[in-house]
């Protein structure tokens, strides 16, 4: 398969690295959560890409449809999306609590405050 034929997978890898980089490099906790979300979404794309069958339609049970995409990864990713949403909601809720407790959501400022605690 040519390089362009793997287009989806290139996008997956670029998104994955972008998200991962944001998680590691950003000091802002909200940005970290969004980086984490991009990282997770790239994996959703990986699964959806592998489910695609050339020339296949949506997996619907109908008399004239014989060639269709693999529905199993779709179902798996529906579950993973729910998990991703829950993770993001919990992460952002924690950021709100951290903001109230520390007065900042910057990692280095939090570390400085924690460094003075016993």
């Amino acid at each position: 398969m040519s390089v362009l034929g793997l287009f989806n997978y290139w996008i997956v890898i670029v998104l994955m690295m972008l998200g991962f980089y944001v998680v590691i490099a950003q000091g802002n906790l909200v940005k970290k959560i969004f980086g984490l979300n991009i990282f997770q979404v790239s994996v959703f794309l990986l699964y959806i890409s592998m489910a695609k069958v050339d020339g296949g339609t949506a997996p619907i049970l109908a008399p004239h449809i014989s060639l269709y995409s693999n529905p199993l990864p779709h179902v798996l990713i529906l579950t993973a999306i729910v998990v991703g949403v829950a993770t993001m909601a919990l992460g952002l809720a924690l950021v709100v609590r951290i903001k109230r407790a520390y007065g900042t959501i910057e990692e280095d400022e939090i570390a400085a405050i924690e460094g003075e605690l016993p």
Binding site: F20, V23, L29, K32, L36, F39, Q40, V43, A80, T87, L90, G91, L94, V95, R97, I98, A101, Y102, I110, E114, L117
Partner: peptide
């Protein structure tokens, strides 16, 4: 209050771990 930042850090690292597993 350090429990909050500990939970946040665990959330980040735990989610990366689980996503790697997927």
């Amino acid at each position: 209050r350090r429990a909050l930042t500990a939970a946040f850090r665990y959330l980040i690292m735990g989610t990366i771990g689980a996503t790697f597993y997927v």
